[in-house]
Write a protein that binds this DNA or RNA. Sequence first.
DNA 1: GAGAACACGTGATCC
DNA 2: TGGATCACGTGTTCT
Lengths: 231, 231
Amino acid sequence: MMDDSSCSEYLPETHETLSSWGHNLQQFNSQDSPFVLPLIPTNSCYFPTWPQEFSASRSHSEAEKRRRDRINAQLSTLRKLIPTSEKMDKAGLLRSVVEHVKDLKERAKETSTVLNTPSDIDEVIIEEEDESSNNNNILVKVSFSCDDRPELFSELNRGLKNLKLTTIEANITSLGGRIKCIFSLQSIKVVCTTHSLKHSLRVLLARIATSPSTSNFRIKSKRQRFFLLAS
Amino acid sequence: MMDDSSCSEYLPETHETLSSWGHNLQQFNSQDSPFVLPLIPTNSCYFPTWPQEFSASRSHSEAEKRRRDRINAQLSTLRKLIPTSEKMDKAGLLRSVVEHVKDLKERAKETSTVLNTPSDIDEVIIEEEDESSNNNNILVKVSFSCDDRPELFSELNRGLKNLKLTTIEANITSLGGRIKCIFSLQSIKVVCTTHSLKHSLRVLLARIATSPSTSNFRIKSKRQRFFLLAS
DNA sequence: GAGAACACGTGATCC
DNA sequence: TGGATCACGTGTTCT
């Protein structure tokens, strides 16, 4: 990587390169005051160790320049993402970035509380509904979020069928590569206990949520969605 | 603001303050190499101009420190907003901020296209519907977004009543301090022409959108929402 | 020691 | 002009 930092190449080829090698060197240039000889600071570079020191210093400053460039590159893409931040300084730009992230997070949260928006984390919520009112049936309400894929729905139906469950009501929302299903499911009590039913459902849904897609379907947004809407 | 940069106060009180005044000065400290006298660079500070130069340099470095601190403060609040960015360097943190802003914007856009979500910019869209099928009536569909406030709805009703408009269908969504109304409105042709009706509607809605709240209602989020969902 | 990351003071530039 | 902002090279620290 730093193959051009060898001792034989420590001399700058052009004035431009030289002038970019530090104002401290320029500051002591004898042209500025011919009667004042530059003194070498104790732990700085004098002749016998110049090449090494010089190339070390050069690689240091070059690495630092690369680091600055990486940071500034991200800052300029951020500037493109935030309207009205054209002529802001760095601190101002970052301040409005903070505002926007907060704002967008809050709006995502508001939207998800009002509407049936898929959450960013896989979740399975199972609650049984007024068991006392009906002696023969178990009625459970299931809320289920995971990554969406084409086979998911048929797998879900097959699994529910295997568990001898009847779908009373279903509300399915697919948004941004995520899916959220809210089911009202019914089971005959003699088939299984409420406890075992819940357990079977949980296993089924966990398997469906974590199993990879068997089709060559590519999820729309591969970016990791790790904003927890609840936070 | 810089009242402590006067010439009479250019001497540091403590070693801590001194040590923060630049490594160049320390580097030429006679303790380091007693036989090498520090030479003064041409345009640097020597005695007659020391106080001025010294305080100028000091205010410069202090201003620069304040600037760095402002930037770093924003960076650390950003770090709190982005999970899993605890141990990232600055460039990495900014890269994931870019990712998140892109992601959140895309999700806001997805949500708004699927659902009747209020847009961030005030907008009035009026289109007439199949005028030919009904000779006596003008049927217009109105989409309208603006800041929400308690009096808005009654103002809207009063305005529509004044225009002799009948509401056939209405879909109102209020979310995050913004409101979006979709109306299907009907008018008798003899009352006015389609053109003048559209004009009157546009004036009415523009007035309602821009008029300040007469109640002491405070909008929930005072942050300016200038993300254009369409972009 | 080599490399990466940070804070610092400084010259340049723009109002 | 002085105040603010930026890029730069450097000292320091951690791994």
